[in-house]
Amino acid sequence: MNALKKFIRTGSLLSLFTTMLLLLSLSPTKLLAHEPIFGLGPNTIFKGGFGIETKYEKELLTGVDEPERTTSFRAEIMYGVTGDLAVTLSVPTIFGYTKRDSEGSRSGIGDISFRTKYRFWRDDKPGVQDAAAVIIGIKLPTGDYENTPALGSGSTDYLFALAAARASRRWYYFGNVRYRLNTKGNTIQFGNLFLADAAFGVRPWLTEYLKPDLVVMVELNWESRQRSKTEGQIMANSGGDRLFLSPGIFLTLRNWAIKGGVQIPLWQKMNGSQRETDYRYALAIEVHV
């Protein structure tokens, strides 16, 4: 308990958990190429189709004590139940987590999550698709949370999201809100997380099917986390707000896609003494079969 209090005082443990949870929560349903990399879109996959994505993510936080670097590798598989309903299983593997020398780094499976996305509205016009979807998800405490650095939160958490978009041959517009309801884990109940994203994309060249297709996108990502609690007490060094500007690209060829983006912090207001994000980036390969 003394060690725990020490961590809380320095903000280290919380910062560690926050980093990890943010990484896990930043990808609620990214599967499908022409959706924001860090935000969310309403697209699903064709009925009976599988989408498989592998994603590499990295984040650097600095400002308090030594820098933290988190690297994760995520595998996701999506299945189209209908043309408007999809289910997704996400398995993150966290590795190369380095913190202080005394804590070292760990790797292993993180918290597995399961999501379902229902596109409840769709309006198709020539070369244009307007759509909106609701997403509900659950994150299970499958990652090791008893050792430090932890790989999971130790809690079962829930995701609720609403996403809308207009996709056309030339332009893309996305908007979404997400709320993550966290329950109590082993000793800590992490603060709930609210995210809102807006994205704008353009296809510079209107290439035809079976030709390489490039879309350039810029996102604005806002994250707001409530303070966490332990033993009924609010943790001072927890929670806060961040705003990111995130340029990204999508390059697709038939059923293959490569996408990548960088999150650059525009503004951060973290409570108490916590590290701030220097950057995050993500690179993913996706295939539909």
Binding site: L32, A33, H34, N43, R122, D124, K125, P126, G127, V128, Q129, A167, S168, R169, R203, T207, E208, Y209, L210, K211, D213, V215, F250, T252, L253, R254, N255, A257, H288
Partner: peptide, 9 residues
């Protein structure tokens, strides 16, 4: 209608 991108197609 609604056909906007090659990946979706």
């Amino acid at each position: 209608n609604g056909l906007a991108c090659s990946f979706c197609a």
